[in-house]
Design a protein around this nucleic acid. Structure first.
Length: 586
DNA sequence: TCTCACACCTTTGAAGTGG
DNA sequence: CCACTTCAAAGGTGTGAGA
């Protein structure tokens, strides 16, 4: 468990004053956890937490899209008010106890110790990283929920927002601009008074979802990719031809052009031959100026046009909810997956047309479609005691402190030494075997593609996300419409648990990080220089640490209401009233 | 490098309508 | 009462100018 880093960080920053939606790690919660854990362990030494004994699997959804971004070098915009991630993190979870309650949280951890800068057309290392910022967990709004529910649908963290405002008090995940981060998922089992073995803590990192935080997009290809795939950026598609600014600009250009043509015609009528001047070329360039910003670097206008003519299948998936629904069971990355038999990328659209034609037949049609395209679940189990690195992002790593260019992410698991997907599947054990054969996408290899039904409510357009949104549709008890606050979560837990909370001994076992460089594939090819992400050196093995959520939340809660001192005095006895009884919504 | 106002877009829920 | 449509507000996008 990487408590070391978190504890140091939290002490330097004030408590999040609005912890409604997000968790926060108070200054010495680690001590609280330790003490509480020690207290709890008193009666049950040697009992392994249930969560640690489960074969929990997590797979990142939308892998195709992540790979597209990763190949270029993913950038995530961070703003003062907070910016959502795109692609957002969506995961499927298996192996949980269906009847146990879990809290899912996500935070961002440094991918490396470097600061980057954009130099013309590539990322370069530009010095050492700045001091870490306080870890703020984004607690999934549906937390806590039964394992059954977490496993029912993919879990979306699309509401997670990133910011560069260290003073923000609205519960955003604070990042440094021009630094590289990777998402990290936490699964914490809620304590169950009737199950002394309940509790536990698992953590999963997603190196293939690594990104560089920026305040303005640097790589135009990233911009283009985002515009093509993000429904909210639809207004920037079609080369921006439907935008007012463009129209105005074009109108001005047209007027200019017409004026010049008129002048030339006048000249022509006066006997002088029209001349193709540079100015005229300028006019043309001017009229297509907005195109440049949408096209890939170096791309030409005709390329853009062809893009518009041939819709991106990813766009289609977003635009066509049926297609997305068909793709969903394949983890939504089925957008670009070819039919294994026909190798026809239109297969899913065809299926969509047939099965999802009527909005009134959502559920049934969806089920049919799922049956047709879903792959059987086959998720071999990596050994416990390992952090589940689901892949890696192949930023070419320059020599330290040199200003060698940092190339884009190399393709994943296509000849990829850093293939992301297989780790979860059976290939976790042999995907990076000595053969180093490029791995082709295997739609019928479950990996992350296993049948998951769509939630009852689907969105018209934003389906890949909204399908997951239903997970977050349960209103907060506070009625604010906001995601579940810690208070809400505690109330919810305790309303179910009633008395007897004291008997629990929530404990967790850290899954030790499996250093990526231990995988044979990373030793080859262009990734030879890739330094495995080691943002948070694990503590020595002889010092096992646990993260009982209950303790953490109790401490958090009590810190907020001024009971921190009492907690410390009482060695974080989880029996403090504020943790047992419903608490006012802060 | 960063901030901000802007236009464009989707999402969401309330209100209205008809069977 | 239910299903459907319409509408407006809220909020998520990238852009581009300016600091």
């Amino acid at each position: 468990m990487y408590l070391h880093e978190e504890r140091l960080l939290c002490g330097d920053y004030p408590l999040n004053s609005q912890p409604r939606n997000y968790g926060y790690c108070p200054p010495d919660w680690k001590d609280a956890v330790r003490r509480g854990q020690s207290w709890n362990r008193g009666g049950k030494v040697g009992c392994e937490p249930e969560l640690s004994a489960l074969q929990v699997r997590v797979s990142l959804q939308g892998r195709e899209l992540w790979e597209q971004f990763g190949d270029i070098g993913t950038e995530m915009l961070i703003t003062k008010t907070g910016r959502r991630m795109f692609p957002s993190c969506r995961v499927t979870v298996t192996g949980l106890n269906p009847q146990a309650k879990y809290v899912l949280m996500m935070d961002m951890v440094s991918f490396d110790d470097d600061k980057y800068k954009w130099s013309r057309d590539r990322w370069e290392v530009s010095g050492m990283t700045e001091p870490h910022l306080p870890n703020r967990f984004f607690i999934h709004p549906d937390s806590p929920s039964l394992g059954e529910r977490w496993m029912q649908y993919p879990v979306s963290f699309h509401k997670l927002k990133l910011t560069n405002n260290t003073l923000n008090s609205s519960g955003l995940v604070v990042l440094h601009s021009m630094h590289k981060y990777q998402p990290r998922l936490h699964i914490v089992q809620s304590p169950d008074p009737y199950n002394p073995l309940s509790g536990g803590y698992l953590r999963f990192t997603f190196p293939e979802a690594a990104f560089i935080a920026v305040t303005a997009y640097q790589n135009s290809e990233i911009t283009k990719l985002k515009i093509d795939n993000n429904p909210f950026a639809k207004g920037f598609r079609d080369n921006g031809l439907n935008r007012k600014r463009f129209r105005e600009k074009e109108g001005q250009s047209s007027e200019k052009l017409n004026e010049r043509q008129l002048q030339m015609e006048l000249k022509s009528s006066n006997g002088s031959r029209p001349v193709e001047s540079d100015d005229e070329a300028d006019v043309i360039v001017s009229s297509s100026s907005s195109v440049d910003s949408y096209g890939a670097a170096g791309s030409r206008t005709d390329d853009i046009t062809s893009l518009s003519a041939a819709p991106n299948p990813l766009i289609s998936a977003f635009m066509n909810w049926g297609a997305a629904a068909a793709a969903l069971p394949c983890g939504q990355e089925g957008w670009g997956v070819q039919d294994p038999m026909t190798h026809n990328t239109h297969t899913y659209n065809t299926l969509t047309t047939r099965d999802y034609g009527s909005p009134g037949q959502h559920n049934e049609a969806r089920h049919t479609g799922l049956s047709n395209v879903a792959s059987p679940l086959f998720l071999p189990h990596p050994p416990l005691g390992q952090t589940h690195h689901l892949g890696s992002v192949g930023f070419r790593r320059p020599q330290a402190q040199s200003r060698k260019p940092v190339g884009p992410h190399p393709p994943h698991h296509r000849g990829g030494p850093s293939g992301p997907a297989p780790e979860l599947s059976h290939s976790h054990s042999h995907s990076h075997t000595s053969d180093h054969q490029p791995q082709q996408p295997q739609p019928h290899q479950a990996e992350f593609d296993y049948p998951l039904p769509l939630p009852p409510k689907v969105s018209r357009m934003y389906l890949p996300e909204s399908a997951l949104c239903s997970l977050e549709m349960s209103p907060s008890p506070s009625g604010s419409g906001n995601p579940w606050s810690l208070t809400d979560m505690l109330n919810r837990i305790h309303s179910r648990e009633g008395s007897g909370i004291n008997s629990v001994s929530p404990q967790g076992k850290l899954l030790q990080a499996q250093a990526q460089y231990e995988r044979p594939g990373l030793e080859l090819g262009v990734n030879r220089e890739l330094r495995p992400p080691q943002p948070n050196p694990p503590l020595p093995d002889h010092e096992p640490e646990y993260l009982p959520l209950h303790n953490m939340m109790c401490y958090h809660q009590n810190s907020l209401i001024g009971f921190a001192g009492l907690l410390r005095d009482n060695h974080v006895d989880p029996r403090v009233p504020s943790c047992k009884s419903p608490m006012p919504d802060l």
